[in-house]
């Protein structure tokens, strides 16, 4: 068989690669796009058969109704508040632990991390009832601490795993230079470990924030007052005019709006992460 000319085979390779990327992007984006289209369609077009793909005309009705009937802005703020504090707490504690764990002997380090992994494999639903009892005893039902503390704790294993491996890459001499310079352990983590491994820390924080933002089970259990609900619990409470009506349009709008902050955050952080990685900061 004749071999293709080199330029042609290269072109074919590139085309194949492009097609694969395109397929992947389409696969990932399709549900979100469908969600967005649904949010902008008038009610009649949502359930219309045959399918109506593009809303004609597009309407902001669902978004507006969402805001009229539910304190949707408050939901978003609650989510932001709870997720931000939980992330801060989680990453701070994980960073302190990781700095120490990274300097343990290989045996104790691996034992500890494995133990954490095993613990984190238990389904969180096991924790729901004890946590609920605890929160009630403390009077924390409808208090943001009832979410902040468990969120921080539940994400701790993940954060510790990521940060530990990042901190382990740092030369030991860097930490020792800090010791000779008179930095306390806390100062060394805050002024050396975290800034030097900033890309990893930012990635960790982002992941933890996304998990907190998306958490549903604890949120819907602990937050019973409408003005305390986070956005996931809030979306669940969006209902139609009658029991039989499912307000697809409003739900789609709600999901879309709830996702937007995460999208913005990822884009912001992504630039940060890439910038950090390309600076080539960590060099023996």
């Amino acid at each position: 068989m004749n071999r293709l000319p080199r330029w042609l085979s290269r072109l074919a390779g590139q085309a194949l690669f492009g097609a694969a990327v395109l397929a992947l992007v389409a696969w990932s984006l399709a549900p979100a796009v469908w969600q967005a289209l649904t949010a902008l369609k008038p009610d009649a077009q949502i359930t219309h058969m045959p399918l109506v793909y593009l809303p004609r005309p597009a309407t902001w009705e669902h978004v507006a109704r969402l805001w009229q009937r539910k304190p949707f802005g408050t939901y978003l703020l609650n989510s932001a508040w709870v997720s931000a504090w939980a992330t801060l707490l989680c990453v701070a504690v994980a960073a302190l632990a990781a700095a120490r764990v990274a300097r343990l002997s290989a045996r104790s380090r691996e034992g500890l991390l494995l133990g954490l992994l095993v613990i984190s494999l238990f389904p969180p639903i096991l924790l729901l009832f004890p946590l609920y009892e605890g929160a009630r005893a403390l009077g924390w039902i409808n208090h943001s601490l009832a979410l902040i503390l468990p969120y921080a704790a539940l994400n701790l294993p993940l954060a510790l795993w990521v940060l530990e491996s990042a901190f382990r890459q740092l030369p030991a001499a860097l930490d020792e230079a800090g010791r000779v310079d008179g930095l306390s352990p806390l100062q060394r983590v805050a002024l050396i470990h975290v800034p030097v491994a900033l890309p990893a820390v930012a990635t960790t924080a982002l992941l933890v924030f996304i998990f907190c933002w998306n958490e549903f089970m604890l949120a819907v259990t602990f937050m019973t007052r409408d003005d305390r609900k986070t956005v996931t619990a809030g979306i669940a409470s969006v209902s139609g005019a009658s029991v039989y009506e499912i307000p697809w349009g409003q739900l789609a709008a709600a999901v879309l709006i709830a996702t937007l902050p995460l999208l913005v955050l990822v884009l912001l952080f992504q630039r940060r992460i890439v910038a950090g990685l390309t600076r080539g900061a960590v060099k023996g």
Binding site: A173, L174, A177, V196
Partner: peptide, 14 residues
């Protein structure tokens, strides 16, 4: 009250 110069310098990269 000692100053230490490390073999690989160990400068704070950030």
């Amino acid at each position: 009250e000692v100053g230490f110069v490390f073999q690989n310098y160990a400068l704070y990269p950030h």
